[in-house]
Design a binder for these strands. Sequence first.
DNA 1: TATGAATGGTTCAAAATTGGATCAAATAAA
DNA 2: TTTATTTGATCCAATTTTGAACCATTCATA
Lengths: 223, 223
Amino acid sequence: MPRLVATDIATELSKRIASGEWTESGRIPPERDLAEAFGVARNTIRRAVHLLEADGTVVRQVGRGTFLADPDPNSLASVVARMEGTSPADMMEIRQLLEPAAASFAATNASNSELNAVREAHQTACDSADMPTFEHWDAEFHHRIFACSRNDFLKEIHNLMRILRNQSPWFEMKKRSFSEERRQTYCREHQAIVDALIQRDPDSAKQAMLVHLQTVGYNLLGR
Amino acid sequence: MPRLVATDIATELSKRIASGEWTESGRIPPERDLAEAFGVARNTIRRAVHLLEADGTVVRQVGRGTFLADPDPNSLASVVARMEGTSPADMMEIRQLLEPAAASFAATNASNSELNAVREAHQTACDSADMPTFEHWDAEFHHRIFACSRNDFLKEIHNLMRILRNQSPWFEMKKRSFSEERRQTYCREHQAIVDALIQRDPDSAKQAMLVHLQTVGYNLLGR
DNA sequence: TATGAATGGTTCAAAATTGGATCAAATAAA
DNA sequence: TTTATTTGATCCAATTTTGAACCATTCATA
């Protein structure tokens, strides 16, 4: 047994943690159990665990236990958690990437009845009397275009973006910055998209959607 | 009895619910019964069920019981769940949309050291002796390009896609269909991407990435 | 309609679990 | 020998679990 049993135990624990021994529960055994398992006094375990704590490998909580500090950054949960901090600019950039593509796909793949549903959402939005109603049908318009893109994954990414936007405080900002003039602009731009879709022209649909999203981006981000 | 009994019971209950144990009645047993079944105090069961309630997994009603909640199709959880069923073709279509854009962004936004990291991953992949090593560095190559696209949301979408691919059985298929010839093709195509990035040419980078992903798509989907 | 059983909601105190801290004695290393 | 490490023990503080009692609501049944 070399010198400093504690450091040896610390590296052993590190190895086990790295090998995923306790990733499932996210928690390592109580010090008293570890002491028994390693056949060593509890104080020694405490010293070893203290090293891991100093590393940032592990976090201790009185009365609860010792926990792995960084939950697997490659788990679905952490990815989604990080997505919740997405900035408006980053989100807009991706929207401008995906939605024109969705419009293009829709022009090619949508059934006539699906296109009618898109036009219907557009029409209802234009005819709506108050802002909340407009915003609902505006969102529905975009949603229905994704719905007929015939790519389920793309559709779900859009759902994801919608949820993230609705969760974010900066979405409220957008609502407040709304005006009747902007509403009319959006209606005109939506009309252009609908026209391109009905003409089954993917490139025009893509272009019209991009133009619209640039307007939305400008209104939202001021650039 | 293990530690943190309440959370353990919560995950156990989650598993049973997911496996459809109580879907026909839509109702889980009374707390007092669960307490007896798990050999634990009722308060502990209450804590566990409270976690499920917070998840939205379950709804409680005084005097009636605890019921399975109608899954909200617009919750993050259900969106992610639906994403897990993404087809290879749909996934590939989106990759061919996003990764060329990421490469384009990278050509514009990356620092020189980030580009070096990309080149390094490419080099290591080319030099790797066995297939698992190659695949690791291949993945790292793509990841690092997203990392310097300077759009965090895009980066996380890529992480999401990576996780979904790794979870899916059809990903194994791809691994089996690998050959030395393909590996060399990928190396050449990666080289073209690296060259375009270092020349800071967004359009070439985008184009080179698209070409590469068309190869990957062809190998994966056979069309 | 009235009653009682079943069920979740609430509260409380005692016991158990777990990390935090300290100290003196034993042991190993220099 | 001197110094540092480990041990073994004890007590403290935070948290969880337990066990019990009582309340409020729902629902079936007398």
